[in-house]
């Protein structure tokens, strides 16, 4: 039996290490000039030269559907940006003993210096950033590369931000594939 998985999104003002609005399951992964989940991206375009608000997603695994979850990786794995010299996708750094998890901040269009990984290029999932798992929520400082299935488990936050340069053609970006890979048993 496969682990029951859902993408969840946090938005809104940071409180207690997470967003005030938690959307489960997440409805989309569109980058836009707004942090409101229900705002259509087409109504909140990113002006050339500016950035999107951070899109703060994470994964939730429902207890009872797995024994153990481990070996998480996150990467941009398919479809290159049409104009990569005017587009940069930034993402969360690897979760390690010394680094991470990402600390939630109220999303905004300002460059998020904590998103250090350049996810613009399509890469092999094996060279994606390490994703660790938390016992009670993505905002929890407690983290481990492996978690058992005795309770609901969560990935660390997996935020991304689309950054653009002046000169980017108007219109939607290419639709990308971002992959979260994990082992379950």
């Amino acid at each position: 039996m496969a682990a029951t998985f859902a993408w969840v999104e946090d938005t809104g003002t940071a409180t207690g290490g997470h967003g005030t609005t938690r959307t489960n399951p997440a409805t989309d992964a569109n980058w836009k000039n707004s942090g409101v989940v229900t705002d259509a991206y087409s109504a909140y375009p990113i002006t050339a030269g500016n950035n999107s608000f951070q899109k703060v997603l994470y994964g939730k695994f429902t207890s009872g559907s797995f024994n153990q979850i481990s070996a998480g990786l996150f990467a941009h794995t398919a479809t290159a940006f049409a104009d990569p010299t005017h587009t940069t996708l930034k993402g969360v750094a690897a979760c390690t003993t010394a680094g991470g998890p990402y600390t939630y901040v109220t999303p905004s269009a300002a460059t998020d210096a904590n998103l250090t990984v350049d996810m613009t290029a399509v890469i092999a999932i094996a060279s994606g950033v390490a994703v660790w798992f938390t016992p009670t929520g993505p905002e929890t400082a407690s983290k481990a590369a492996t978690q058992d299935g005795t309770a609901d488990r969560y990935t660390n936050f997996l935020p991304t931000q689309l950054q653009t340069a002046v000169g980017i053609p108007a219109g939607d970006t290419t639709q990308l594939t971002l992959t979260l890979q994990y082992n379950e048993n």
Binding site: A48, G49, N51, T85, H86, A109, A110, T111, T120, A165
Partner: peptide
């Protein structure tokens, strides 16, 4: 400088951009 006053760095070889926060 980006339109919002942030630091923008463009690679002279491949043209890719990196942004850094304003006021650092």
């Amino acid at each position: 400088a980006s339109p919002s006053g942030e630091v923008q760095a463009n690679c002279q070889v491949c043209g890719r951009l990196i942004k850094f926060p304003a006021g650092v």
